[in-house]
């Protein structure tokens, strides 16, 4: 028995994401220091702190939870923060005014959000950015529209993890890591890794 995608599940999802991020924070910062400017971990932590503040207002639907998440990220510095903010904004807007949401709506939101991130950031798959995990997750969610949210999110997590892993051998063409060229080869992209963490947290939060 898996849970439906509603307010409570969305809250568990964000709590799980924040907890997983905290255990991985040092690693994400190290990765960013190796290929970027080292502020990714601090910026994401700041954003997730603001998420907790905004969720204290107790939004009443999954749509409202992700709207609060979006505002928190749009209130964060750097470039990853606002891009995630627009990603969550599209996700929120694809979900229904009343719970629960279904997998089709979830897939639509992630597809729309990923398209927005690509448009604003100018990144394609293979540029060693968060997009490398987002695009495979969109495909996995779209393929899983006949299943329940837990199955769909598990498939999305696997796809995003594979996408994140693929960034290790790449040289960045967008984002901060693009300034360091070959130096970034052999370093996973922390943004892609964060996307994978997000879907894995969702799969766990929807499990029963």
């Amino acid at each position: 028995m898996t849970a439906t995608l509603d307010r409570a599940a969305a809250r568990r999802w964000m709590d799980a994401f924040a907890a997983d991020f905290e255990t991985q924070r040092v690693r994400l910062t190290e990765l960013d220091r190796a290929a970027g400017d080292g502020d990714f971990g601090a910026n994401l932590r700041s954003a997730l702190g603001k998420v907790q503040q905004r969720l204290a207002a107790d939004p009443q639907t999954a749509r409202a939870v992700f709207a609060a998440v979006s505002d928190a990220f749009l209130d964060t510095g750097g470039t990853s923060g606002p891009l995630f903010g627009m990603w969550f904004r599209a996700l929120s807007r694809a979900l229904p005014e009343t719970d629960p949401a279904d997998v089709t709506q979830l897939a639509e939101g992630v597809r729309e959000g990923t398209a927005t991130v690509q448009r604003l950031g100018g990144a394609e798959v293979g540029d060693k950015t968060m997009v490398d995990a987002m695009v495979p997750a969109v495909a996995a969610l779209t393929d899983a529209t006949g299943t329940g949210p837990q199955q769909a999110l598990t498939a999305a997590a696997e796809a995003a993890e594979a996408g994140a892993a693929s960034t290790e051998d790449l040289v960045a063409r967008r984002g901060r890591a693009s300034y360091v060229g070959e130096v970034a080869r052999g370093v996973l992209d922390p943004g892609a890794l964060a996307v994978a963490l997000f879907f894995r947290a969702g799969a766990r939060a929807l499990d029963g």
Binding site: L74, D75, G85
Partner: peptide, 14 residues
């Protein structure tokens, strides 16, 4: 205004 040498956030601008 952003922090020293850092962009303001989108939410500030909105």
């Amino acid at each position: 205004p952003g922090a020293v040498f850092a962009s303001p956030t989108a939410l500030q601008v909105v």
